[in-house]
Simulated scan of single mutants.
Amino acid sequence: MAKLLTDTEIDAELADLPEWNRDGDTLVRIIKAETFPAAIDLVDRVAVEAEARNHHPDIDIRWRTVTFSLTTHAMGGISPFDVGLAHAIDRIALG
């Protein structure tokens, strides 16, 4: 089983995730889509990836703005699962 990342490890991971910020025990990224349907499509593509990983983000949709929040609830903090999904969301957002 994965372990929670230390503050130093989280900072190092965020260096490779420039669009993400840390908010306590959560990694957060806000993405503005061109249209509301594009925002929903982004969420749908992330949902497929999250389901495949069995690791699911908290998602907030406000018109064209989608906020992804990642934390490993079962462990109470940020784990490698969150970092991996953050990288996947970045790849999906570019596609």
Rank of each mutant, 00 (worst) to 15 (best):
I92C: 10
I31K: 11
I59E: 06
L5P: 01
G24M: 15
E34G: 14
A12K: 01
E49H: 06
L4P: 04
I78T: 08
F81K: 11
T72M: 07
R91L: 12
L70Q: 07
G84E: 15
I30H: 15
P80C: 07
T67V: 09
I89V: 15
L5K: 00
K32C: 08
R45I: 02
P80W: 09
I40G: 00
R22H: 13
S69T: 07
A12C: 00
I89Y: 09
A50C: 03
V43P: 01
A93D: 10
A50M: 03
V43E: 01
V28P: 07
A74F: 13
A12M: 00
G77T: 09
N54C: 01
T72R: 07
L85K: 07
T8I: 02
V28D: 08
D16Q: 02
T26R: 15
M1N: 02
D82W: 13
D90V: 05
M75T: 14
G77V: 03
D44G: 05
K3T: 03
D25A: 15
I31E: 07
E19Q: 06
F81V: 12
D44F: 01
T6K: 03
F68R: 01
A38G: 10
T72Q: 08
V83G: 04
A33S: 14
V66P: 09
K3D: 12
P57I: 07
V83C: 00
D58E: 14
A93S: 04
M75N: 13
V66G: 02
L5N: 06
I30E: 13
H73F: 14
T6N: 07
H56F: 09
F81G: 09
D82L: 10
T72V: 13
F68W: 12
L42V: 03
T6V: 06
L42A: 10
R91C: 04
R91E: 15
I89W: 07
A15F: 03
P37K: 04
W63S: 05
R91I: 06
D23S: 12
R62H: 05
D41L: 15
S69Y: 11
R53P: 11
T26L: 12
I59C: 00
A2Q: 03
I61P: 00
D16L: 04
V46L: 05
E34F: 10
H55A: 05
T6H: 10
R53C: 09
D7A: 11
G77S: 14
A38K: 11
A50Y: 06
F81L: 13
R45P: 02
S69M: 14
A88F: 04
D7C: 01
G84V: 07
K3Q: 06
A12S: 03
E34R: 14
E13H: 08
G95L: 06
R62L: 10
A15T: 07
T67P: 05
N54L: 00
R29H: 14
R64F: 08
L5M: 02
T67I: 11
I31T: 11
S69Q: 12
